[in-house]
Design a protein around this nucleic acid. Structure first.
Length: 323
DNA sequence: AATTAAACCAACCGCCCCACG
DNA sequence: TCGTGGGGCGGTTGGTTTAAT
């Protein structure tokens, strides 16, 4: 049974012919889609409006990127999926030129199997039981893509599971890494490349709070020795910004909380403290002792070594794995 | 070369949400 | 407040392509 929008007309199904594609492209590029339900009739197509929409969004749109997913795209998908789960449309927003359908297909046909082969549950991203992994290893394979170089390196993901940390930290000691550090920029903050752990704290601060005073206080409170700290603020203009900010904290619960609080929030503050020696330390004490007016505070330990440059006011970030 | 199995991916289905009357 | 239609989204299907035997 077709959708209601096409129940009154005789519609074609299945694969689209080049002629149909041409008609749809011609119509959309000259008139825009407007109401999808009216597109088939106006464009001279015997198709359901939903089918036209899907064909355009998933295949005909001029801004689509074709071809295999890159290793970086693959890593991004895994990172975000760990936080958001099967929210393909949300994940696809972080991959310019990719559709939710494409991401979903790639996940189901390839990434899922790779994670299982690595002993990770693709749903939770946590370790599977050894038996499960072994059984699955006997059956899985993934058709290699030309530029798919994803390796489960311990440092490649911002959200790598902590169980992998031990091996990697040992590795680091053997082979010190000295990457070039990007010059400071107002729009970015940088993680120091040579620390082992970091704490990312996201706070939503009321309008009547003195942001600068808070940042000063935070810097003094958590800077120890030469351990770097960076603070950043953003002024959320819409709902999306706050939600995206929460990706840094890597916790879906914080996303929900921030959504809830978003109408009351004036600014989002992110504080990053790094401490090579005290991996478990957080900033609870600072918030408990301060007089500032917080709506929400989230501290997340990220026990992993990585080097990243994060756009504060954009919806994507870039990180480079240590080699 | 033929057959079979596995992988891929375009498209459909059904549900949900939201705007609107 | 309720009903309806449109659009968006995730799950699933099934045809096609590729690899293995």
């Amino acid at each position: 049974m077709g959708h209601q929008c096409c129940s009154k007309q005789k519609v074609k199904r299945g694969l689209w012919s080049p002629e149909e594609d041409e008609k749809l492209i011609k119509f959309i590029t000259t008139h825009g889609h407007g109401s999808w339900s009216s597109v088939p009739k106006l464009a001279g197509l015997q198709r359901c409006g939903k089918s036209c929409r899907l064909r355009w969004i998933n295949y005909l749109r001029p801004d689509l990127k074709r071809g295999s997913f890159t290793a970086q795209e693959e890593k991004t998908i895994i990172d975000i999926h760990r936080i958001l789960g099967n929210r393909w449309a949300q994940i696809a927003k972080h991959l310019p030129g990719r559709t939710d359908n494409e991401v979903k297909n790639f996940w189901n046909s390839c990434i899922k199997k790779k994670l299982i082969a690595q002993g990770l549950d693709p749903n939770t991203h946590k370790l599977l039981s050894p038996n499960y992994k072994q059984n699955y290893n006997n059956t899985i394979a993934c058709r290699p893509s030309a530029d798919s170089h994803y390796q489960p390196t311990f440092s490649s993901s911002v959200f790598t599971v902590s169980s992998q940390m031990k091996d990697f930290s040992m590795d680091v000691k053997k082979t010190p890494f000295t990457p070039s550090i990007p010059s400071p920029d107002a729009n970015y903050f940088c993680l120091h490349p040579l620390h082992i752990s970091s704490t990312i704290t996201t706070c939503c601060v009321h309008q009547n709070s003195n942001i600068q005073a808070f940042l000063d206080c935070a810097s003094q409170s958590v800077t120890m020795g030469s351990n770097p700290i960076s603070c950043s603020t953003s002024n959320p203009s819409g709902a999306g910004i706050i939600e995206e900010k929460c990706l840094w904290s890597g916790d879906i619960e914080s996303t929900q909380t921030l959504r809830h609080e978003q109408m009351q929030v004036e600014q989002v503050v992110e504080i990053e403290k790094t401490n090579e020696l005290n991996a478990g330390q957080n900033m609870d004490a600072l918030f408990e002792s301060s007089n500032f007016d917080f709506d929400f505070v989230e501290c997340t330990q990220m026990p992993e070594m990585y080097y990243s440059v994060r756009p504060i006011d954009q919806l994507t970030w870039d990180s480079q794995a240590l080699q």
